[in-house]
Computed example of a mutant assay.
Amino acid sequence: MAGSEKLLLSSIHDVSPRFEREVDRLTERIERATGSARFAMLVVPDHWDRAPIAADPAFQRRLRDWADAGVEMFLHGWRHRDDRPSGFRARHLTAGEGEFLHLGQAEAERRLVEGRKLLEDVIGRPLTGFIAPAWLYGDAARTALTALSFPLAEDHFRVWRPADNAVLARGPVISWASRSPARIASSLAFAGLARAALGPQRVVRVALHPGDTGVPALLRSIDRTLRRFARTHRPAGYADLVREGARAAV
């Protein structure tokens, strides 16, 4: 990859049988706006204990088909739910979904091991990495990722390699929130600012969620954002950051 080449990393969060229809809509949106099928899916093995992928052979086949078509697969927690949300980040940055924020190391490792085995058995290949629900990690979760040699991880402001903590990309994730009118308004404002300000960024990350599909204004903003960056940044995969040894350049 040329040193000056800019990359667009698009992702769909909360991929689960609970949101299959919404995932399909977001997949179509990314492909239409960017002209590419290069994007990532963040998969939850049993979203809120209501949608176990292990018991859904039809959804397993869909995941395998997506992976065969080149979609990158990340483990995205185990259940996407924090049973004891406390502290500023847990209360204000997510609606009780910071699953890996308060786990001890042993429990974090257990969920990481079981989630990786389940999904890799389903898709028939290694996962690209792990991204915590709501991008929230406790210290124990970070230690567990390093101990288990996950190839990539991501939070709100960086992509890194847990094995040695090397930062592969920096910059804020562009995402949208649909939980309240105030959050909708603020995410629309941030996306507009990002379209104007992040053009020089070498790596731009755009993250979509199932809830986005229920708000037309968010969908319009998503389309504008994807189209804008697809003009200047090559739609790419997270694995490109590893293969090419990319580092963030603002």
Results as ranks from 00 to 15, higher is better:
F59I: 13
T128Y: 04
L63S: 02
F130E: 02
F88S: 12
R158I: 03
D164K: 07
L93S: 05
A106L: 06
G87M: 13
P162M: 00
W78P: 07
D155R: 02
Q60F: 08
R81F: 06
L168I: 01
F157V: 01
P85T: 06
H76Y: 08
D56F: 06
I123A: 03
D68P: 02
R79A: 12
R179T: 14
A95W: 13
D155L: 06
L103K: 04
A108H: 04
A106T: 13
S175M: 04
D139P: 04
R62H: 06
L112R: 03
E109V: 00
E99D: 07
G129Q: 03
R61Y: 02
W135Y: 14
R125V: 04
G77T: 11
Q60M: 05
S175I: 00
A54G: 07
Y137D: 09
T143Y: 00
G87A: 14
T146M: 07
Q60S: 11
P151H: 08
H156F: 14
A177I: 02
V122H: 10
G138S: 09
H92F: 15
L136E: 13
R161P: 10
G70K: 14
F88M: 07
D82W: 08
L75V: 11
E120D: 11
V173D: 09
L118F: 14
G124L: 08
R170G: 15
L63Q: 08
H156A: 13
G70Y: 09
G124D: 06
V167N: 08
E114D: 15
D155H: 12
S86K: 14
D82V: 01
E109R: 12
G70Q: 13
E114M: 08
V173Q: 03
A166L: 13
W160Y: 15
F88G: 02
V173Y: 00
W66A: 15
S86R: 15
E114G: 02
L103S: 09
G98A: 10
K117M: 02
R81E: 11
T94M: 02
E72D: 05
L93C: 04
D65M: 12
T146S: 10
G96Q: 03
L103Y: 13
G104Q: 04
R81D: 00
R179C: 04
G171R: 11
R91L: 14
G87T: 12
F130H: 10
